[in-house]
Design a protein around this nucleic acid. Structure first.
Length: 266
DNA sequence: ACCTATGTTATCGC
DNA sequence: GGCGATAACATAGG
């Protein structure tokens, strides 16, 4: 969220999934991969051979991963975006395009990644990929009972648990802070110190925040100004105007932003 | 030149 | 074994 740079979390990846749908059902006639560094478990030639002549079909998202099928093939394509990845369809990609496909209708699909911390992989089917990588259920597919049960017994901090992709997939550093802020819970609280009532508040805020962020296409400028997200800087005034100040604190090895005056600690 | 931002993984130590 | 802390990865921008 710094300097207009978006680090993809669940809402951003949901938008990228929609972008990828625009690339579906169109025959791929050419494919260029600029660096093998972004590939996992496949090679430039292997991926190129897999894609040329085929059509993408059936986009599935789970947390920050997107999987898409290949029509008439047993293989699926997995996209992960790391901190700087994105997809561009039928537009000029600018710099840092790592995978580029051209369709027979003249359109294009580009996977961009400046820092190359994301990965493109292949898998037999989405389920086997989730299982092999220990990915928890998507945050938007989790109901309240599941949320409570999956967090139960954890002794770490709530922020760390919310970011743990094996518990619940989709929240990163930014949205875990947002959920804690709007639920008015200190992100450093231990999970096992939270009552069911408090956990339920976190759950309901998480659902509401993610749904609204997707509705607004995950664009920071279109999110409510009462959210913490557009105010992630030390010393900023509490966006809900209760006289508090945004503070930066290291929690579970990450930079957490919070308003201590408004977020309950026990 | 140095520091920082982010997601994920690996590793160390309590 | 859970958990926190730290470094590694890569790179641009302050």
């Amino acid at each position: 969220v710094r300097g207009g740079l978006i680090v993809p979390e669940l809402p951003d990846v949901a938008v990228l999934g929609t972008t990828l749908e625009r690339a579906c059902d169109r025959r791929i006639v050419d494919c260029t991969i600029t660096t093998a560094k972004i590939l996992s478990g496949t090679s430039k030639k292997g991926l190129r051979d897999l894609l040329i002549g085929k059509r993408l079909h059936g986009v599935v998202r789970r947390g920050k991963h997107v999987v898409v099928g290949l029509k008439g093939r047993e293989r699926h394509l997995v996209f992960h975006f790391g901190m700087t990845g994105s997809l561009v369809v039928d537009e000029e990609p600018g710099s840092h395009a790592r995978l580029s496909c051209r369709f027979e209708d003249g359109g294009t699909l580009h996977y961009r990644s400046q820092r190359m911390l994301g990965k493109i992989a292949t898998c037999k089917d989405p389920e086997s990929w989730w299982r092999a990588h220990g990915l928890g259920p998507d945050a938007l597919d989790v109901d309240w009972e599941m949320f409570r049960d999956r967090l139960r017994g954890h002794r770490g901090m709530i922020k760390a648990a919310l970011m743990d992709q094996s518990l619940i997939a989709g929240l990163g550093n930014v949205y875990s802070d947002e959920v804690c802020y709007q639920a008015r819970i200190d992100p450093g609280m231990r999970v096992d110190r939270l009552s069911d009532k408090t956990l339920n508040t976190l759950y309901r805020n998480m659902q509401r925040i993610l749904h609204l962020a997707i509705k607004r296409q995950a664009r920071v400028s279109d999110l409510p100004d009462t959210w913490l997200l557009p105010h992630r800087q030390e010393g900023a005034a509490d966006p809900r105007g209760h006289g508090g100040t945004v503070v930066k604190r290291s929690i579970a090895g990450r930079n957490a932003y919070l308003v201590p005056e408004r977020q309950q600690q026990v």
